[in-house]
Each structure stands twice: as structure tokens, then as C-alpha cells.
Design a protein around this nucleic acid. Structure first.
Length: 565
RNA sequence: GGGCGCGUGGCCUAGUCCGGAUAAGGCGGCAGCCUCCUAAGCUGUAGAUCGGGGGUUCGAAUCCCCCCGCGCCCGCCA
């Protein structure tokens, strides 16, 4: 809803500027519009015009203010505050927000693009660790945000089946037994063991090389081995992802693109650019004129393809089958991703939008699957769940063990997701148990709890007679906290729109906290059930609207909205 | 050495892209609030040279330059 108010304000301002004969420079926010503590929307456009018009900002603001049309829809008034123009919403806006929030279909945006989001794509050589989670959570949250914005999204997992890691897994399976533990953990054990074995037995490296070559050549036995190992590992990985409400819609194996001939085709196309050459037997692409010092190796001396070559083919496929394609990548892929985008540009293929997230390290240093140095996602979820269980048990001692476990699992999954998504991707983080186990304000449980409280009010409020005949008198909602809550609910579309366009999921996390906070103030200062009938009815409506908004926000964050906790 | 990213109260972060009106939260500290819809909540309080220095501007946490610190990358690995 806020977007409607905003476009109305933009229209009003542009008309007024035209009338005054003022022209603003082109730019993203050329009207200087921003939310502000002083208004619902404030414009500082007068400052920008002042030097051009050689007048004082205040005089310009006054002129614009007088030139504004009085034909308002959602605007109540425009106040002149020095050089600022302050716009305020009217009662109709608040009514409409409340009314829309009470309907269930009010939350889908107007974007219609077909989007491919590739995330997680962890090598199937072990379980996800707390670093991978950052990829998965950012990716899945973006998938949800874009769907909410109206897009059709295909969440893809790119399976690395041709790399050295996977060959080492197969070698590991040849030399060691998979024990009965969870599939991805069992795979990690033989993978780590194989790497350790290689330290003392260098011939292991040759075994892996042979696996790579046989697989690329399509050797049946090798194909069968790799496929079974990968499917096994991915099964375990999926299980972990599901615990966090994360699902992929499709899987694409890099070998697909080799077998279909796409990789060879791309290499051929790159050859035509005239920037390729054989150097020491390897086929390479020279991107120095685009600022890349290192040449991009497309084929090894032995003729096999490399990750980047196969990735090029995969990205061509993604571009051809979407309007937008988005990659979620760790900071270690920055360079390679830049090379890939440059190569795609050379071929006239639309580049992906890339979300880079910085590293998650342990207090003891960085993580490594190969060395077995990591905190697995399962371990984290188990621990958080255990802690959550203790919390619920204290709060709801009368409830059944099933209830406690259910709530604990949903709280834990939410807590882990929120803990990750609340931080901007370009911040490197150090994993901290204390913070992961904190269920207070800056956390999913805080938001889930607000939702549960709203549900509780509605449950109790509906026990008695409900008057459905008289319309809700939303103008009775005059409390500061009530109006603030309605306005906060209205902001949802703006937040989704921005987060979807700019690919910044953490903005939604910030919004979720603010929304919950607004609701808590309403909860604290505006008693619902004990209010006079008409006021009670209005507040019930607001409680329901807030519940819907909280639920939608939580769902978009991939966090379960609990009715009770 | 080069490239990219980050640096905001004791700790963790939002705000930076697109410069505007008192720098916003959380944790921890201190002081309060459950005869009242779930206290995983609410209120108050102390605590900030926005890494340092220069510059641009009417105005800089935000833009530009230099420096310092931290992270990541610079493989015929992925």
C-alpha cells in the first residue's frame, strides 16, 4: 500500500515542479523522497534545486508547496517545514491498509518476471556447515521475496558432479566403508579419510584423476558410482535443508552440459572471439583487456573441461530460460564469477545478477570440509532445538511433549534462519553460539511470539458473540501506537519491492523486527478484549490485520508462524 | 605485491548504493513493570571523535583521494 501513497506523492511533486518550471536531474531518487521521523514521506528536492535556481531552498520549497495540486487521494496534507516538504497519509489510506490487510490475497506484488535463483549448490562431499547455511538462507529468502513480489521463481541447485571433490568421494568409497550415519555425514567421513590417505599415499591423486577422466568419457561403472554417491549425499543435504523450510525446484548436474555438447559449443563460440589460445597445451581465454590478470583456462592439457567452462554452459541455459537469473555465491567466487560474467558478455549472453556473501568463520579460524573442520548445519539445528525445547518447557509446562518438540523445532529453524538473514551479506561474520541461541528481541522467536500473541487475542475475542453486521470503524483507532502499526503494515509492499529489485533479503529481516515491535506496542497500550464494543471491534480488526502481516512476513522469511508458543 | 569487500558505544548489527532535519536497534550494565489479551514482552538510564587524515558540498556515517587494520581472492581445484 505504501507504494501507492509514494507514487501519488511523486505525481504531485512532479506536477508542482512542472508548474514552477523546475527540472530535476535524472537519478534514482531525484525527488529527494524519503521516509522520515518528521513525516510519512519527506522531500528535500528544494535543496537540489537551490544552486541551479540561485534561490534559497526555503523559497523554492515554498513555491513548490503553493503549486501543489489539492487533489488528494491518500495524501492528507503537505506541510512546509523550512526547506522540507512533508507529506502525510490520510484516514482513507489507513482504512484501505486495514481493509486490505484483512483480506488474504493482498500480499502479492505485480512483478511478473520468470526468475531462476541458484543457491546452495554445495559440493555433495559432506553435510552443509554453518557457512553453507548463509548461502541457502539468503537464497531461499530471496526466492520467497521474489515470489511474494509476484515473480515465478525456479530455485535451482547446481550439482557439482565432475569436480575433483566428487572423484575423491568415489575414491573414498572404494577404500572405506560408509558407516550407518546420516548420508551426508557418512560421505564426509570417507571423503576426509581419502584426503588424509592421499597425504601419505600420493597415488590416490592418480586414482582421482582417472575417475575424473572416466566420468567425462562416460564410463558406465564410474557414472554409476558417482551418481549413487551424489544422490546419497544430496539426500542428506536435502533433509537438512527441509528442516529449515528450504526446498529446490530443480537440480542441474554439470555433466548434463558436457553430455549435451553445450560445453563444446560454448568453447567453440569463445574461440571465435579471437581471444583464445593454447598455452602449454591448455586452451585459454585471455581477458586481460577486461582487467583480469589471469587467463581463464577452458580445457586442461588432457582435454577435460573445468568447472568454469561447464558453469558457462549452465549460465547460458539459465539466461535463455528466464528473465532474471540470480546466483548466490560465497566471497571466494568473486573473481571467477567476474570472469564468467565477462565471458558471457563476450558471447552476448545476459549476465546473472550475483549476490556475494562474505565468509562465516569459526572463532578458531575458517572452515574446511576437506579437513573436517566445521560446525555442521545439523549440529547447529540440534543444539538450537535443544535450547528452544528447554525454553518452551519452562513457559508451557502443562503442554504435551509433542507440543514442546513441535514448537522447539519451529522456533529453532526460525532462529537459525533469522540469525543468518538479519546480517547484510557483505559483512564477514564469526559464528557465535551465544548469539545463535539468543531468543530475544533481534531474533525469530521475538517475531513468532508477536504473531502468537495476536492469535491469542483473536482466539479469545471470537469465543463470545461476534458482530459481523456493523462495519469496522477504523477511525476509532486513533492511538499513536495504533496508527504507527497500520503504517508499518502498509510498508510491506515497499520493503518487498526493494528487496526483490536490489536482492537484499536482510531488509525484510529488519522490517519484520519493526513490525513485531509495532505490534507489541499496540499489545501493551491498546487493550482489545476489555475495550468498549465498537472500539473492541476496531481493535480486533487491527489485531487480525497485524496477525496477517506478521504471518506473511514470517512466511516470506521462511519462518513458521506459530499460533501458540 | 595486485584486486574486491568490510571497519558505526564494551560486544553484535541497521543506516552507506541514491548525501539532508536529534546517528537507529539488539546483547551486556544499572533501575523499574505480571490482581491487566502468553514477561520469548514493555519502560527508563548510562554508553559513539561513525577506523584515521585530507577533499567536494549550503550540508558527509553516506561521495572522492591517501593511510591503517581485518577478511576473501589471485590453481590445468571447485
Amino acid at each position: 500500500m505504501f507504494l501507492d501513497f509514494m507514487s501519488e506523492v511523486e505525481g504531485l511533486l512532479r506536477d508542482a515542479l512542472d508548474r514552477c518550471g523546475y527540472k530535476v536531474e535524472e537519478g534514482v531518487n531525484n525527488l529527494g523522497l524519503d521516509v522520515s521521523p518528521h513525516a510519512d514521506l519527506a522531500s528535500s528536492v528544494a535543496f537540489r534545486l537551490a544552486p541551479l535556481q540561485k534561490k534559497s531552498p526555503m523559497a523554492i520549497a515554498k513555491e513548490i508547496h503553493q503549486a501543489l495540486s489539492q487533489n488528494y487521494n491518500y495524501v492528507d496534507k503537505v506541510e512546509l517545514s523550512g526547506p522540507y516538504l512533508n507529506f502525510f497519509v490520510n484516514q482513507k489510506f489507513l482504512d484501505t491498509v486495514l481493509c486490505q490487510a484483512l483480506a488474504d490475497n493482498a500480499w502479492t506484488g505485480r512483478m511478473k518476471e520468470l526468475v531462476i535463483v541458484e543457491h546452495t549448490s554445495a559440493n555433495p562431499d559432506g553435510p552443509l556447515h554453518v557457512g553453507h547455511i548463509r548461502n541457502s538462507v539468503i537464497g531461499d529468502t530471496l526466492v520467497r521475496i521474489m515470489r511474494r513480489a509476484g515473480c515465478t521463481v525456479d530455485a535451482q541447485y547446481y550439482v557439482n558432479d565432475m569436480g575433483r571433490q566428487e572423484a575423491m568421494v568415489v575414491v573414498g568409497c572404494d577404500h572405506f566403508q560408509l558407516d550407518g550415519s546420516k548420508a551426508d555425514h557418512a560421505i564426509a567421513k570417507v571423503y576426509i579419510a581419502a584426503n588424509r590417505l592421499m597425504e601419505t599415499n600420493p597415488e590416490i591423486r592418480d586414482e582421482a584423476d582417472q575417475v575424473i577422466q572416466r566420468y567425462e568419457a562416460g564410463d558406465d561403472e564410474t557414472v554409476a558410482k558417482i551418481h549413487s554417491a551424489i544422490k546419497y549425499a544430496i539426500g542428506g543435504i536435502e533433509e537438512t535443508l527441509h528442516r529449515m523450510n528450504i526446498r529446490h525446484d530443480s537440480y542441474h548436474w554439470e555433466s548434463e552440459f558436457v553430455r549435451k555438447g553445450d560445453v563444446a559449443e560454448i568453447v567453440g563460440q569463445l574461440e571465435k572471439t579471437g581471444l583464445t589460445e593454447y598455452e602449454e597445451g591448455a586452451f585459454q581465454l585471455d581477458l586481460t583487456q577486461y582487467g583480469f590478470e589471469k587467463k581463464m583456462v577452458l580445457k586442461r592439457t588432457n582435454g577435460t573441461s573445468l568447472y568454469i567452462t561447464r558453469d558457462l554452459a549452465y549460465h547460458r541455459y539459465k539466461s535463455q530460460n528466464s528473465d532474471r537469473s540470480v546466483d548466490i555465491l560465497g566471497a571466494d567466487h568473486k573473481l571467477v564469477s567476474g570472469q564468467l560474467r565477462t565471458a558471457l558478455r563476450l558471447l552476448g549472453i545476459r549476465e546473472p545478477e550475483v549476490v556475494i556473501f562474505e565468509f562465516v568463520s569459526l572463532p578458531t579460524g575458517s572452515m574446511s570440509t576437506r579437513k573436517g573442520k566445521f560446525i555442521s548445519a545439523d549440529e547447529l539445528l540440534d543444539e538450537v532445538e535443544k535450547q528452544a525445547y528447554e525454553e518452551v518447557k519452562v513457559r508451557r509446562p502443562e503442554e504435551s511433549d509433542d507440543f514442546l518438540k513441535q514448537v522447539a523445532a519451529q522456533v529453532a529453524a526460525g532462529a537459525v534462519r533469522y540469525d543468518v538473514v538479519k546480517v547484510s551479506p557483505d559483512k564477514a561474520t564469526t559464528f557465535d553460539w551465544k548469539q545463535a541461541l539468543d531468543f530475544e528481541k533481534l531474533s525469530a522467536p521475538f517475531i513468532q511470539y508477536s504473531h502468537a500473541r495476536a492469535c491469542s487475542i483473536l482466539r479469545k475475542g471470537e469465543e463470545g458473540q461476534v458482530d459481523q453486521t456493523t462495519p469496522v470503524q477504523s477511525d476509532l483507532l486513533t492511538g499513536e501506537n495504533e496508527i504507527a502499526l497500520i503504517k508499518k503494515i502498509a510498508e510491506f509492499d515497499l520493503v518487498i519491492d526493494r528487496a526483490a529489485r536490489e536482492l537484499k533479503p536482510h531488509q525484510l529481516a529488519t522490517y519484520a523486527r519493526e513490525l513485531a515491535e509495532s505490534f507489541n506496542h499496540f499489545y501493551r497500550y491498546s487493550p482489545v478484549l476489555d475495550a468498549e464494543p465498537k472500539l473492541r471491534q476496531a481493535r480486533m480488526a487491527l489485531a487480525r490485520a497485524a496477525k496477517n502481516a506478521l504471518r506473511t512476513t514470517l512466511e516470506t522469511l521462511g519462518i513458521d508462524a506459530l499460533e501458540t508458543m
